[in-house]
Amino acid sequence: MKGYGQFCPIAKACEALGERWTLLLIRELLCGSRRYNDFKRGLPLISPTMLSQRLNVLQDRGLVELKRSEDNKSREYHLTQAGLELEPIVMGLGEWGARWIRSQMSDDDLSVELLMWDMRRTINCSALPITRTVLHFEFKDLDKTYKHWWMLAENNEIDLCVDDPGFDADLHFVSDLRTMTEIWLGDTSVSQAEAVGKLAMKGSSQLIRHLPEWFMFSGFANVVRGVA
């Protein structure tokens, strides 16, 4: 990206972070993504070439580094100290967006891949049964490629699947993409969506009863909308 030709620290920071996808990659790293496939799930529209390029640039700028995984079988991307110090800036940007911009969400902004990946990484597994718990999400407005999603929680870990894992679902959600996104973002509640027939839950009454304990919403769900 061409520089601004200014010594101002704000200008230099914008040069380092202002390219397309860069801040969203920082978001993914702050949310725990470490490997290439994790980034692709959080950023489904980024091309493989662009992803590799942006990761290389972030390394060159000293914001990201490659480290060996705990099992020493692969390499993972981690934020450096400089990258970690971006957390309040990125989260503050998200809070501002939730307060002032989220009402402008169009159908083109809806992404079932990002929604399910976000929900998967915030599910509170410790509040679920120790034995395997299978959550099945059905989006009635999507085609068969993206219509069904499963989460398998076991031993305090959770996997996200787009293919039927072959286990009976303990809880089955039926909704549309916009409604589930609005629930996740805190723009409507589970009870409100159920009341107007936009959400149905079938299965374990215990899981439904304890839903607020294990189904965590977006970190920006409680941000109050601003009034212009």
Rank of each mutant, 00 (worst) to 15 (best):
H136K: 08
F137K: 02
F137Y: 14
F137N: 00
F137I: 04
E138L: 03
E138Y: 05
E138Q: 08
F139L: 11
F139Y: 10
K140I: 07
D141H: 02
D141E: 04
L142K: 09
L142F: 06
L142G: 05
D143S: 11
K144Y: 04
K144S: 12
Y146P: 00
Y146T: 10
Y146R: 13
K147V: 02
K147S: 05
K147P: 00
K147Q: 14
K147L: 01
H148D: 04
H148F: 01
H148R: 05
W149C: 03
W150N: 02
M151G: 01
M151Y: 05
M151T: 04
M151H: 05
L152K: 06
L152R: 07
L152F: 01
L152A: 01
A153I: 09
E154L: 11
N155L: 07
N155H: 14
N155F: 08
N155E: 14
N156E: 15
N156H: 13
N156W: 06
N156D: 15
E157K: 15
D159I: 11
L160V: 11
L160I: 15
C161I: 11
C161Y: 15
D163F: 09
D164F: 09
P165G: 02
P165N: 07
G166D: 05
G166H: 09
G166L: 08
G166Q: 04
F167N: 07
D170G: 11
D170I: 06
D170P: 04
L171F: 07
L171V: 10
L171D: 03
H172C: 12
H172S: 13
H172W: 14
F173D: 10
F173L: 14
F173C: 12
F173P: 12
V174W: 06
S175V: 09
S175H: 12
L177D: 02
L177C: 08
R178T: 11
T179W: 03
T179F: 02
T181V: 08
T181D: 03
E182C: 07
E182G: 02
I183Q: 00
W184E: 08
W184T: 02
L185T: 09
L185R: 15
L185M: 13
L185I: 02
G186H: 02
D187V: 05
D187E: 14
T188Y: 00
T188M: 06
T188L: 01
S189P: 05
V190G: 01
V190W: 06
V190R: 09
Q192M: 11
Q192T: 12
A193Q: 08
A193I: 07
E194T: 15
A195Q: 14
V196Q: 12
V196A: 03
G197Y: 10
